[in-house]
Nucleic acid binder design. Structure first.
Lengths: 185, 185
DNA sequence: AGCATGCCTGACCGATCGGTCAGCGCCTGA
DNA sequence: TCAGGCGCTGACCGATCGGTCAGGCATGCT
């Protein structure tokens, strides 16, 4: 059974995944039909649904790595408070957003819709904790507003700048975060 | 023919417009069907299409005031440069975003899609000029990145905080803008 | 009375969506 | 040699979308 042996042909699963990632990033999740993906791969729509139980399963598998890192981020900021929380959350989130630009791009605007699905239910809580960290655990509304501006702004900006190199995007974003967040009293 | 006379019944046009604004702000443009709107008003889908040529016409009429103010903003920032451009653009845009929160909310994520339509074609150019102004007309990539973070962050935040009073949201946003934008060299 | 006009509607249309299903060809192990 | 599973497909399904259309029902003018 030599499991190291190269399997001859069947890389369709991965091809579908890659094509879906490309199409979702441009047209969004709802805006991309299974037909579109199948066409990009060069197979039939039925083949897509042979490799993935349904459209949502495709999305889940596509988002899995990003979600794993997001959960790691959540654990990382769990014990922090004040200015340290702001700094650590800023660094980690910018890193995540830059790395997973494509995954963020495909959620454009559908974020709140897709979040409703049970598969992504806990992400809502994580983003809530992220905002709290960005606000330096301050109760002041202005702190929370600044936190949301930064969070949403970074996400949108990463989705927009998909082509420029990471090394250019990351430090610029980090600088914005450090400037924009309200200093803890 | 006494044109001042109160017309007896027919306020359906306005009711449809109001209901559409409410539904769009929650479900988005693409996510809201003409059925939904008709149901909210209490009339048939055919009635909606009797008062409006098509779905896009409904959106256009809904967005008209916001677009008018946006164009005024564009004219206002036309002759500015450097730090003055940042300050004026910031004040005007925050004002616009807060006032037209609902209109912004209904574009959530569909912004880039709807922008393609000829009716909103020039908005793309306006937002381009807005980013340039936020960047203080600097060519540095980091300045443009900061500008986009601020622009997108404000829009998203306004769409999120639809309930809190203007007087609370506006100053907080202005403070973030002044902090976040990269100082002109 | 008769006619026109404005507002509204149910029925219907073609297109597209996500998803199902029976069955095809092909490779492989017994 | 042949049975069986794997990858894949075209045809099809019900639902929903935006949009059309002929006609109903008042109201008001002549």
């Amino acid at each position: 059974m030599l499991e190291g042996m190269a399997r001859a042909v069947p890389e369709t699963h991965g091809e579908i995944l890659a094509a879906a990632a490309r199409r979702f990033a441009v047209t969004g999740y709802k805006g991309t039909s299974l037909q579109d993906i199948a066409g990009a791969v060069g197979c039939s729509k039925a083949t897509v649904l042979y490799h993935f139980a349904n459209k949502e399963a495709l999305l889940s598998e596509l988002m899995a790595p990003a979600i794993a890192v997001l959960e790691a981020l959540d654990a990382r900021i769990a014990g922090t408070t004040g200015a340290a929380a702001q700094e650590i959350a800023g660094e980690c989130f910018v890193d995540l957003a830059v790395r997973f630009r494509r995954e963020i791009a495909l959620l454009r605007g559908e974020f709140s819709d897709l979040l409703q699905q049970p598969a992504f239910a806990h992400i809502q809580q994580i983003s809530e904790r992220l905002i709290t960290a960005f606000a330096g655990h301050s109760d002041r509304p202005s702190a929370r507003i600044a936190a949301l501006v930064v969070l949403a702004g970074i996400a949108e900006t990463c989705a927009e700048f998909i082509d420029i190199p990471d090394d250019e995007l990351r430090p610029a974003l980090l600088a914005v975060v450090r400037r924009a967040l309200e200093p803890v009293t």
